[in-house]
């Protein structure tokens, strides 16, 4: 009979596991404390939940005619944000692609700025723009433009980095300068992916645009905010249902378009 091997010294791994568990536990207790999580509160408020449901249902069906215009405004914000953001994202994506970028410092700078832009939630941008240019859809469109630039340029630059560089070499070998390689090799190869990212951004933007109004940046969210603060939850529910329907519809359309592209 062969000798049994010693179980590997797992003290280090055990210590690491124990430390991780403690960390997670500590973070959780700290969070629960800070939030004031209490199941008692949750369940003792079930009565209020019943009242809320009473207030919210049935939805105020007759409210819908007043939702059409704000909803169209929402879509307009999403469309402008998507189109302008995507146009700006393309050159930035090329600069942010390691394999294609013409200059190292430019690549580095661009990458880091984009990383910082992405840390800010879309609604933060909406608040900032609403404060700078005033309440209304213009602020919302600007917020979504920045958001789109950050998302689309990141994804597109990754696609560009994974394209077939042999073709690019070929264009360069036949005497093409940097701009020509970009136009005749890089862009044609990355374009289908880019378009699908733009559609993806459109889906995100339609979703995001519905809540921009909560901070005064236009669209149906502004109506929502009014009804919410005056506790007309039957109207809130009507708005939520309406938004839900339109978001689903646009996502289905966009998803179908993306499937045909890729």
């Amino acid at each position: 009979m062969s000798p049994r091997p010693e179980a590997p010294a797992r003290t280090r791994r055990h210590l690491l596991t124990a430390a991780a568990v403690l960390f997670v536990l500590g973070l959780t207790v700290w969070s629960a404390n800070g939030i004031g999580v209490s199941l008692v509160e949750l369940f003792s408020n079930l009565g209020r939940m019943g009242r809320l449901i009473d207030d919210s249902f049935p939805p105020a069906w007759s409210f819908w005619p007043r939702l059409i215009k704000p909803l169209l405004e929402t879509l307009q914000i999403a469309i402008i944000g998507t189109i302008f953001g995507s146009i700006l994202a393309l050159p930035l994506a090329i600069l942010a692609a390691r394999t294609v970028s013409p200059s190292r410092p430019l690549y580095w700078l661009n990458r880091n700025i984009m990383n910082v832009l992405r840390t800010m939630p879309d609604l933060f941008w909406a608040m900032l723009f609403a404060s700078a240019v005033g309440f209304g859809p213009f602020a919302g469109a600007l917020a979504l433009t920045v958001f789109t630039v950050a998302v689309v340029s990141k994804l597109t630059s990754e696609s560009i980095e994974s394209i077939d560089m042999k073709l690019t070499e070929a264009v360069r070998a036949s005497g093409g300068n940097w701009l020509e390689t970009v136009f005749f090799s890089v862009l044609p190869q990355a374009l289908p992916q880019y378009v699908s990212y733009v559609l993806y951004a459109l889906e995100l933007n339609v979703r995001a645009s519905t809540v921009l109004g909560l901070v005064g940046a236009g669209g149906i969210g502004m109506v929502l905010n009014t009804q919410r603060t005056t506790f007309q939850y039957d109207r809130v529910t009507m708005i939520v249902l309406f938004v839900f329907l339109v978001v689903m519809l646009i996502e289905q359309l966009s998803a179908a378009a993306r499937r045909r592209l890729v």
Partner: peptide
């Protein structure tokens, strides 16, 4: 999340919960 929060606020009150 924001829309969900709009429904939770009247139930458990304003705040982190």
């Amino acid at each position: 999340e924001l829309l969900l929060a709009i429904y939770f606020v009247p139930v458990v009150g304003l705040g982190a919960f």
